[in-house]
Design a protein around this nucleic acid. Structure first.
Lengths: 249, 249
DNA sequence: GCGTATTGCGATCGCTGTACCCAAACTAGT
DNA sequence: ACTAGTTTGGGTACAGCGATCGCAATACGC
């Protein structure tokens, strides 16, 4: 009767019916295959036919589980969101949120197709809700209003995605082209300040490990390793949005 | 001889040759048409045929100007980057960078397809170089090393894109679905802290204007209007990466 | 005017997302 | 045990996509 006619969300439809011929596959199985293909061969090789072939079935069958390809992408996004581990609040909300961000960074680096996708398509599913609920729980006693907390959640995800995409340089091929063009632009004249940039560390921004100390350093210094840099950045973002840390200065 | 065989970058190829039949169109003209379509009808209606039709020509003709569709997307990204106005450094690098960020936010909101695209495809062209050069000029006397300045540049773009995408909610349709699912999830049980979120301000995060004061407020307070919130956020990010403001405490 | 270099673009190929249709496989009711 | 109803499996088909090819048209240097 009062139905909003636009297909609401895949997670509001029941996965399988009680009657009729039972399904041979599941959303999770299809999602897992799609994520595997994206990890291995890139996001735009994830076609319905390719995923179906991976599962040994026909492309049309997938449409019993998913209405469109975009819905499959939604499932993929939420599925990797489930890779988070969410321990109980420690009492230090800043530390808890930074820990979540560091997990997110690891997850995003594991699935290089994710940063671009999650920004273009900020969809929320069961795992996204669990994450949001966890963040709200961490911030339960924080005096900020809900809108601010929601914004902090969005920025925790968004800033992390942006940072990882910067770390990865948008993929090796693209980064190579960018560097080549930068050199070209510098050599043919006009940009004096770019020269010093290219004479130093442009080719590979960073790698993944944690070679040095594991995080936030004394206020004022900027860490050298990527993990420390990320922690430093996300700490500033979060304390900027939510005020300074609870106990710390 | 020493050629890296992968097609280097569209901006390293000359746009037109001196000899032979002269071209009837230009990269700029095609780019402009494509941006117009994307603004009006969304990014994924930007097909080669559609753009060609807009220009009254055939799809194959466009491949004289652009090698692939992705290259057209690169042109679009860089073209809107040219909408920035870059005044000379004022001496206060933080204020200058925040001003750039606010321009970026306006531009990104004008082209809602951009945030997702620029994160997924962080390509740099002439306008991107001009912007980078400008940022480096603003930071000329800043003591940080080049890698840190480059990171600040990347985060200025990345964080702004993430913020705008959060403001826009990923498009009306997607936001509607998300809200519907959140309500569904809350009503069917488990997530206590989500309830208070939905009882308050979830449907539209923000609108664009600048109803109240125009920016950074006294330290400690968090502004209410979106413009102030953005300024607050980007200020925290930049001073987090580059140390505190030059004159200010 | 003639060779040479470039562009314009219709025709075409392989691939994509997805609608349609019917056979197969299951449950519920009798 | 049979029928009626409901759902899934998946082959086929279609419109549209990005991209290639080949040829006619159009310019310049000589």
């Amino acid at each position: 009767m009062t139905a909003g006619q636009s297909a609401p969300s895949i997670w509001m439809r029941p996965e399988r019916s009680a009657v009729g011929r039972p399904a041979q596959r599941s959303r999770a199985e299809i999602t897992c295959a799609a994520v595997g293909i994206a990890d291995r061969e890139g996001l735009d090789t994830v076609s319905m036919r390719r995923v179906a072939a991976e599962l040994g079935t026909g492309a049309a069958s997938l449409y019993r589980y998913v209405e469109t390809r975009d819905e499959l992408l939604d499932l993929m996004i939420d599925a990797v969101g489930g890779e988070h581990q969410l321990p109980g609040p420690s009492g230090d909300w800043l530390a808890d949120l930074v820990a979540i961000g560091e997990q997110s960074r690891t997850i995003l680096r594991r699935h290089p197709w994710l940063p671009g996708l999650v920004i273009a398509r900020p969809v929320i599913g069961p795992n996204g809700i669990a994450l949001l609920e966890h963040v709200l729980a961490v911030l339960e006693r924080h005096p900020a209003d809900v809108a601010t907390k929601l914004e902090a959640f969005a920025m925790l995800n968004g800033v992390t995605a942006a940072f990882v995409q910067y770390e990865l340089g948008g993929g090796a091929a693209l980064q190579e082209r960018n560097v080549a063009y930068l050199q070209h632009a510098v050599s043919s004249g006009e940009h004096p300040r770019l020269a010093e940039l290219l004479s130093q560390g442009p080719p590979a921004p960073a790698e993944g490990g944690h070679p040095a100390g594991d995080g936030v350093c004394a206020d004022g210094g900027v860490p050298a390793d990527p993990v420390g840099r990320y922690a430093h950045l996300i700490t500033r973002v979060l304390s900027g949005l939510l005020g300074p840390a609870p106990g710390a200065a």
